[in-house]
């Protein structure tokens, strides 16, 4: 494996500064944001690298679980932040996070104990990156699906209530919106599988090849990961939409848009 020196990092950073200068010259007003984002990526990744180094040295189930818990908490917050009209109260954070937990963790545990089978099964070199990829993708799917559902329910209040008025149970009155939102949440994952290897070389596979794995070994891992991500995303999205749509109606099956947060003025 070829290791990178501080000089190599500096060179890549210099290229980012150069492109920042270019966007500034073009008056795109993104130079500042580009630099801040780059700096954040640099610091965050270095910190994570250090943390992982510590974690790998310990390889203790409790530490792995704690690390996974923090990842889940942050993913939950990110899911919430990506919705324009999330549910109020603990539901806004809780439903997305619970759905992510149930889907990603279950899939990760199945993968570790039945497919990859490191010894012990929670070996952090395997468990943490696997969970990270699952969480990252499930998070995107759930956030898109929830955002779509709450926004559509808000926009189509009249149509939903028209269906309730005509005697449809809540499940039926929201069925189209629910299906549409689930679909929206699953599409990025399905597209990623369809484009894998043809349009893009998936990141994990690329990483393994760079680290010296034989391409076919890397490909096998990538296939497993893609399938696991698809399963995790689908379960997570279905669960989140199921829970959140129930919350949009009360026990008398009234549409309760007052249970959605009011977005801040402007976009």
């Amino acid at each position: 494996m070829i290791t990178l020196t501080a000089w190599d990092l500096a060179l890549a950073s210099a290229l980012v500064c150069l492109s920042a200068a270019l966007t500034h010259a073009l008056r795109l007003a993104t130079a500042g944001r580009l630099l801040v984002a780059s700096a954040r990526a640099l610091v965050q990744l270095l910190l994570v690298g250090l943390l992982l180094k510590l974690l790998f040295a310990r390889a203790d189930l409790l530490w792995v679980a704690a690390f996974a818990g923090v990842m889940l908490a942050i993913a939950g917050y990110e899911t919430l932040a990506r919705q324009r009209r999330p549910l109020t109260g603990v539901w806004g954070y809780g439903i997305g996070t619970l759905a992510m937990f149930l889907s990603s963790f279950t899939v990760a545990i199945v993968a570790l104990t039945a497919i990859v089978e490191p010894n012990p099964w929670y070996t952090p070199q395997y468990a943490i990156p696997l969970l990270g990829m699952l969480l990252g993708n499930t998070m995107t799917g759930i956030a898109i699906a929830l955002d779509r559902m709450t926004q559509t329910a808000f926009d189509q209040r009249g149509a939903i209530e028209a269906r309730l008025i005509l005697g449809q149970p809540w499940r039926e009155a929201i069925s189209d919106i629910r299906a549409d939102s689930m679909r929206a949440g699953m599409i990025p994952t399905i597209n990623a599988m369809a484009a894998a290897g043809v349009v893009s070389l998936p990141g994990m596979m690329t990483g393994q090849i760079l680290a010296g794995s034989p391409p076919l070994e890397a490909v096998k891992y990538q296939i497993v990961i893609l399938f696991l991500i698809a399963v995790g995303t689908i379960f997570g999205t279905v669960g989140a939409i199921w829970g959140a749509s129930r919350r949009l109606f009360d026990t008398r099956e009234r549409l309760r848009l007052d249970r959605l947060r009011v977005p801040p003025e402007g976009h």
Partner: peptide, 15 residues
Amino acid sequence: KPWDWRRQVGFLPTE
């Protein structure tokens, strides 16, 4: 049941 009630007490909104 809420949906049964709404079937029997039918509301016609303005719009």
